[in-house]
Amino acid sequence: MRQRLTSEALVALVAGVLFGAGLALGGMTDPARVRGFLDLFGNWDPTLAFVMGGAVLVMAMAWLIQPRMIRPLFTDVFNLPKARDITPRLVIGAGLFGVGWGLAGLCPGPGIAALVIEPLSAAVFVATMLVGMVLVRLFEKDA
């Protein structure tokens, strides 16, 4: 059965393509550049700081605009996170994320975007990431 492309799906597709293109153009899909950015005490490459700064500015504007909106443009309600507490699970997850980012030079968004640019090396990262996600679901009852 064929389904029509809904406006929500179209917006998600356009946002995903723009996000992936931005990651690629900004250099976030280049593991060597990411490792250079993370190497603060060696041969530090500060160029990704501008990419991250731009992302922070866009998100800051979104957080300022969202409370003034009655409802989202393309759906019925805002789906914002409600949890604000810092838990051991959050700290451990952030630590694992950072270690993985430093070792691989990729994190989930750029890893998926890199599938288009360097499919073989990115596929190893994405497959490993997916295995980790499955393991969390299998071993944590509240995941």
Score class of each variant (00 low, 15 high):
Ala9Gly: 07
Phe78Gln: 08
Asp45Met: 02
Leu120Ile: 11
Arg33Ala: 13
Thr87Cys: 10
Gly36Trp: 02
Val134Asp: 11
Asp142Thr: 12
Thr75Leu: 02
Gly109Val: 06
Glu118Gln: 08
Phe97His: 10
Arg84Gly: 09
Val136Asn: 11
Val51Ser: 09
Leu138Tyr: 08
Thr128Ile: 09
Met52Lys: 01
Leu120Glu: 07
Val131Ala: 15
Pro119Val: 02
Glu8Leu: 10
Glu118Gly: 04
Trp101Ala: 05
Ala127Ser: 13
Gly54Gln: 05
Leu120Lys: 01
Gly26His: 05
Asn43Asp: 15
Ala104Pro: 02
Leu106Pro: 08
Met133Arg: 08
Gly132His: 13
Pro81Gly: 11
Leu138Ile: 14
Ile112Arg: 00
Gly100Asp: 12
Pro110Phe: 00
Gly102Glu: 06
Val126Thr: 08
Phe125Ser: 08
Glu8Phe: 02
Pro72Ala: 08
Met28Phe: 05
Leu18Trp: 00
Ile70Gln: 12
Leu73Asn: 07
Val99Pro: 13
Pro110Cys: 05
Arg84Met: 10
Gly26Val: 04
Arg71Thr: 13
Thr128Lys: 00
Ala113Phe: 01
Gly54Arg: 04
Gly95Ala: 14
Ala15Pro: 07
Val136Thr: 13
Gly95Phe: 07
Leu57Val: 15
Val124Gly: 02
Ile117Phe: 12
Val17Ala: 13
Arg4Leu: 11
Val58Tyr: 10
Val116Thr: 11
Leu64Ala: 15
Phe37Thr: 06
Pro46His: 03
Arg2His: 10
Val116Cys: 10
Thr87Asn: 13
Ala94Phe: 09
Met61His: 06
Met59Cys: 10
Asp76Asn: 12
Pro88Asp: 13
Val91Met: 14
Thr29Ile: 06
Asp142Gln: 07
Gly105Thr: 06
Ala12Tyr: 03
Asp142Glu: 14
Ala15Ser: 15
Gly26Met: 03
Ala55Val: 08
Arg2Phe: 10
Ala60Gln: 12
Lys141His: 10
Gly53Thr: 07
